Simulated assay, not measured.
Amino acid sequence: MSCALVTGASRGLGRAIAVQLALDHGLYILVNYSSNLAAAEETLAEIRANGGDGELLQFNVQTKQEVDEALNTWRENNPERFISVLVNNAGVTRDGLFMWMPESDWDEVMNISAKGLFNVTQNAIQQMLRKRSGRIVNVASVSGMKGVAGQTNYSAAKGAIISATKALAQEVAKRKITVNAVAPGFIISDMTKELNEAELKQMIPMNRFGKADEVAHLVSFLCSDKAAYITGEVININGGIYS
Results as ranks from 00 to 15, higher is better:
Ser2Lys: 13
Leu5Pro: 03
Val6Asn: 07
Leu13Ala: 07
Ala18Val: 04
Val19Met: 07
Leu23His: 14
Tyr28Arg: 14
Asn32Ile: 05
Glu41Lys: 15
Thr43Gly: 06
Ile47Val: 08
Arg48Gln: 15
Gly52Tyr: 07
Asp53Trp: 03
Asp53Ala: 10
Gly54Tyr: 00
Asp68His: 09
Asn72Glu: 14
Thr73Tyr: 02
Trp74Gln: 00
Glu76Cys: 07
Asn78Met: 04
Glu80Ala: 13
Val85Met: 08
Val87Arg: 01
Ala90Arg: 02
Gly91Leu: 03
Thr93Asp: 10
Leu97Asp: 10
Met99His: 15
Met99Lys: 15
Gly116Met: 07
Asn119Thr: 11
Gln122Tyr: 11
Ile125Val: 12
Ile125Ser: 03
Gln126Cys: 08
Leu129His: 09
Ser133Pro: 09
Ser133Tyr: 13
Arg135Thr: 12
Ile136Asn: 03
Val139Ser: 04
Ala140Asp: 05
Gly147Ser: 08
Gly147Leu: 09
Gln151Glu: 10
Gln151Val: 06
Gln151Ser: 05
Thr152Arg: 07
Asn153Pro: 02
Tyr154His: 04
Ser155Trp: 03
Ser155Val: 05
Gly159Phe: 06
Ile161Gly: 01
Thr165Leu: 11
Ala167Pro: 07
Ile177Gly: 06
Val179Arg: 05
Asn180Arg: 00
Gly185Ile: 00
Ile188His: 12
Leu200Gly: 04
Leu200Asn: 06
Ile204Lys: 00
Ala212Ile: 01
Ala216Pro: 01
His217Asn: 13
Ser220Trp: 00
Ser220Pro: 01
Cys223Asp: 01
Asp225Tyr: 04
Lys226Ser: 13
Ala228Cys: 10
Ala228Leu: 08
Thr231Lys: 03
Ile235Cys: 05
Gly239Phe: 02
Tyr242Glu: 14
